[in-house]
């Protein structure tokens, strides 16, 4: 069959035009504006070269902390979602009684808005009146009651936990779809050969799940690098500025009217996101290419 005739190139012209207009052009404009002093107070936009980037990467810049926080969030939030989600997916594809109910319950938080999650968890995690600390105290575990969202030591921990609670079901659902596409015959053959759970996991499940892992990693990394909502509603970057990330900083720059610095920060984030995503995809596909 001649595929070139089946799908001629002009079929993509419309979609390509819209993509260029609404994604590529604004992105390029954003990169251009990051080299200007674009701000709310003046109608004139002057080219300032690397000044905005110099401000971001200056020796005493607070943005280093925000970049570090963003990378830390990316690493930890993905670890605490992907690993448990994989095991939950394995559990819920193993003919567990009521597995559909369990899957629905776990997926449900992903359907809630961040505002609702923020209001609910701010209440649950309140140090005095919150459900969590009250329960701990009632169980005689008062020593474990902490200032979950107000103490610098616990604020990040609470964000990871709430983020995992919200995102776990989504990641798990992608894994379940991947697991269901693995032929059962592989496992049956492995069982006959005497393979145990971990042997099957590392020799069949994980290699066959690579596409699902890649999807979860790319989605997870791009979400984490762009994280804003969950932090905004839970801590608003606090206490102080302990939980500030790149996008909360972008938001504050826009609020201050210094758009140039804001888009420069976004551009830095865009570059990091692009590099990391390409690396992850290449890393995950390397085995397949070699095969």
């Amino acid at each position: 069959m001649n595929y070139r005739h089946a799908y001629p190139y002009h079929f993509i012209v419309g979609a390509l035009f819209l993509y260029l207009l609404f994604f590529i052009v604004p992105s390029l404009m954003g990169i251009y504006y990051s080299f200007t002093d674009w701000n709310r107070y003046s109608d004139q936009v002057r080219f300032v070269g690397l000044e905005n980037y110099r401000a971001i990467f200056a020796a005493k810049s607070v943005y280093y902390q925000y970049i570090g926080n963003t990378l830390k969030f990316t690493l930890i939030s993905n670890l605490v979602k992907i690993i448990p989600a994989l095991f939950l997916a394995l559990l819920f594809t193993d003919n567990l009684r009521g597995e559909h109910v369990h899957r629905t319950i776990l997926f449900f938080p992903a359907t809630l808005s961040f505002i609702v999650i923020g209001l609910v968890f701010r209440s649950i995690l309140h140090p005095e009146m919150g459900f969590l600390n009250q329960t701990l105290r009632n169980l005689g575990l008062g020593f474990a009651a902490k200032g979950w969202l107000i103490h610098p030591r616990w604020a990040w921990f609470s964000i990871y936990a709430v983020d995992a609670w919200r995102g776990l079901g989504y990641v798990m659902t992608i894994f379940i779809a991947g697991l269901q596409s693995i032929p059962r015959t592989y496992y049956e053959a492995a069982s006959i050969d005497g393979a145990g759970f971990f042997h099957k996991l590392f020799s069949i499940t994980i290699p066959m799940l690579k596409p699902a892992i890649t999807v979860n990693l790319v989605f997870g990394i791009t979400y984490s690098l762009r994280v804003f909502d969950i932090i905004f509603v839970l801590t608003n970057g606090g206490p102080g500025r302990v939980t500030e990330v790149m996008n909360t900083a972008v938001f504050r720059e826009f609020a201050l009217g210094t758009y140039g610095v804001g888009v420069a920060l976004s551009t830095v984030l865009f570059v990091v996101m692009g590099v990391v995503s390409v690396l992850v995809i290449r890393l995950m596909n390397r085995g397949e290419v070699e095969q």
Partner: peptide
Amino acid sequence: MEVGKDIEAMYIGAL
């Protein structure tokens, strides 16, 4: 509000 954030940071010893 930015000063408010800074003062909160001072209270926790970060500034």
